Deep mutational scan, measured.
Amino acid sequence: QTTIQVRVPYRVVGLVVGPKGATIKRIQQRTHTYIVTPGRDKEPVFAVTGMPENVDRAREEIEAHITL
Rank of each mutant, 00 (worst) to 15 (best):
V6D: 11
T49A: 03
V16N: 00
H65S: 08
T3E: 01
I66T: 10
I35A: 05
T23M: 08
G18F: 02
T67Q: 15
Y10N: 15
P52N: 04
R30Y: 06
H32N: 15
V36R: 14
P19C: 09
R40F: 11
V8S: 03
P38K: 04
E60C: 07
L15V: 04
A22M: 06
K20W: 11
R11K: 15
E53N: 05
D41C: 08
P44M: 00
T49V: 07
F46V: 03
V36T: 13
E61M: 15
A64I: 06
T2Q: 10
R40C: 04
Q1V: 14
T67W: 11
K20N: 11
T2F: 08
V36A: 12
T67F: 05
R40Q: 12
E60H: 10
I27M: 08
T67C: 14
V8K: 04
P9L: 00
R7Q: 07
I24G: 05
T23L: 01
E63C: 07
P9R: 02
Y34R: 15
Q5L: 12
I35E: 08
Y34P: 04
I35W: 00
P52G: 05
Y34N: 15
G14S: 11
V13M: 08
V48M: 09
L15A: 13
R7N: 04
E63D: 03
E60S: 11
L68T: 15
V45Q: 02
R30T: 10
R7G: 00
Q1I: 15
P38D: 11
A22Q: 11
K20L: 11
I27S: 00
N54C: 14
V36C: 08
G50R: 09
G50T: 03
T3K: 02
G21Q: 12
E61R: 05
R30M: 14
A58D: 09
T49R: 08
E60K: 14
Q28T: 04
K42Y: 01
A64W: 03
V8P: 00
F46T: 04
E53P: 07
L15R: 14
A58Y: 02
G39I: 01
R59N: 00
R40S: 11
T33V: 04
R7Y: 09
E43W: 01
K20G: 14
Q1C: 15
I24L: 08
K25E: 04
K25W: 07
V12Y: 14
K42A: 15
V17F: 00
V8I: 02
K25T: 08
R26P: 01
R11N: 15
T67K: 13
D41K: 03
P9V: 06
V13K: 05
V6I: 14
G14N: 05
K25Y: 05
G18E: 08
V12M: 14
T37V: 12
R7S: 04
E61D: 03
Q28Y: 10
V17E: 06
I24E: 03
P19F: 08
V12F: 14
A64R: 13
Q28F: 00
R30V: 10
T33G: 05
Q5H: 15
T2H: 10
H32P: 02
R7E: 06
E60G: 09
V8H: 04
V12I: 09
K25F: 03
Y10W: 15
T33P: 03
V16M: 08
A22K: 13
E53C: 12
Q1P: 10
P9K: 00
R59V: 05
I24M: 03
I62L: 07
V13G: 04
T23I: 07
I35C: 00
P44V: 01
D56W: 12
P44F: 12
P52S: 10
Q5F: 14
D41M: 10
V45R: 05
I4S: 06
E60N: 11
P38S: 05
E43T: 06
Y34L: 14
E63F: 12
T2N: 07
G21N: 00
I4L: 09
V45I: 14
I4M: 06
T49D: 00
T2L: 12
V13S: 04
P52H: 02
L15H: 12
Y10T: 14
V8W: 04
F46E: 10
R30N: 12
P38H: 06
E61Y: 09
V55F: 02
H65Y: 12
T3H: 00
V17Q: 08
Y34M: 14
V8E: 00
I62C: 03
Q28M: 15
G14K: 10
T2E: 09
R57I: 01
A22I: 07
R57S: 08
P52K: 15
G50K: 12
V36M: 12
Y10E: 15
E60Y: 11
V48F: 00
M51Y: 09
L68I: 07
V55E: 02
T3P: 01
T23C: 04
E53H: 08
K42R: 12
T23D: 07
D56F: 09
V6A: 06
T23P: 01
I35N: 06
M51K: 13
T37N: 03
V8G: 05
E61L: 14
R57T: 01
P44T: 06
V45M: 06
D41N: 13
A64E: 13
G21R: 08
V16T: 01
P19K: 14
T23A: 04
P52D: 01
H32C: 10
D56I: 14
H65G: 00
G18M: 00
G50Y: 00
E60P: 04
V55A: 05
T33A: 02
I66W: 11
T3G: 02
T2M: 12
V55Y: 05
F46C: 13
R59D: 00
I62V: 02
Q28A: 14
R57Q: 11
Y34F: 10
H32F: 04
Q5Y: 15
E61T: 03
G21T: 07
G18V: 07
G14F: 03
Y34H: 15
A58P: 05
P9Y: 01
T49K: 09
P19Y: 13
R11H: 14
I35Q: 04
H65T: 14
G21H: 06
E63G: 01
I27V: 07
E61F: 09
I66A: 14
D41I: 00
L15P: 07
I62M: 06
R11M: 09
T23N: 15
L68Y: 13
I24K: 06
Y10C: 12
E60T: 09
P44I: 01
V12T: 15
N54L: 04
T37D: 04
A58E: 03
R26C: 00
R11Q: 15
V16P: 02
P44E: 14
R7T: 05
A64M: 05
V48S: 08
I62D: 06
R11F: 13
R59L: 06
Q29A: 10
V48R: 07
R26M: 11
Q1S: 12
L15T: 13
F46A: 03
I66P: 01
Q1D: 03
H65M: 15
R59M: 11
R59S: 06
G39S: 12
G21F: 05
I35T: 00
Q29F: 01
R7H: 11
Q1F: 15
I66L: 10
V13Q: 01
K20A: 12
R40E: 12
N54T: 02
V16S: 04
K20T: 03
T49L: 02
V13N: 07
T31Y: 03
